[in-house]
Nucleic acid binder design. Sequence first.
DNA 1: ACTCGTAATGGGATCCATTTTCATATAGCC
DNA 2: GGCTATATGAAAATGGATCCCATTACGAGT
Lengths: 131, 131
Amino acid sequence: MGGRLTRQRASVLRVLTACQDFVSAQELHVRLVTADIPVGLSTVYRALRDLERAGRVDVVRDEAGERLYRPRPADGHRHYLICRRCGRSRPLDSDVVERWAERVGAESGYSAVEHTVELSGICGRCTGLCA
Amino acid sequence: MGGRLTRQRASVLRVLTACQDFVSAQELHVRLVTADIPVGLSTVYRALRDLERAGRVDVVRDEAGERLYRPRPADGHRHYLICRRCGRSRPLDSDVVERWAERVGAESGYSAVEHTVELSGICGRCTGLCA
DNA sequence: ACTCGTAATGGGATCCATTTTCATATAGCC
DNA sequence: GGCTATATGAAAATGGATCCCATTACGAGT
């Protein structure tokens, strides 16, 4: 499914996983280069696109419209609460929403219904900093 | 709050309302020009930004990341089910999600929690066309 | 281990939605 | 009418993402 296993792709996934949070492609690229892992920016974009297709990463957009990536946890969680200030994210238990989306889809006469759910706020740590 | 009422701003809101569905800024601009209402593209963007700030329009992003605008219904609905093929949208009764988001926000220790919910699918009409 | 076909790489060019700039026009108040 | 802060718009800038294409290198087959 994945294609060839190259040094670059392995590195992208490894560093992305080490981030433990949502990162942009550009940010990830900087981290790779900084860590003396030479990778082209296009390669980072391609690796992330492929990971997304394979369902190995979750993607959100920040307020600027930039795409942010995070490896999908083993338990399959796909929805997050993200701090607008520091970017830290935590997976959400979204069963309620999942079921709601399914029901709406079924009742609507639409097929192949997909859903996007994102929560954002200011996390406790950041709130403290501003108080 | 609104600023000055200019011919251009009035036109943007009028044509947007006539659309009855999500439209991009560029598309809206074309419609205006086609209707012999000369308006600059930047003005359309500015008008939409102001309408968004005033809470008079809802915004979503299509798969390409382009921003799509739609006047917010009087009842304050903000979540939609959108056809990925033809773009037609219908407001959703999202009380369930609203309450869920509120609860998660309260339990999480995050403040100023906001949420985004979007459903997309293929509407009945479009499904028929492809059968 | 060697060869070879094919997929992957990278860096520059390109795309394109959105924003900014700034000189000009105009809404709206006296 | 006159004035001034605000709005306009054409062009240029911005910036994320994608494309191009000559070059590299994975890895299957032998």
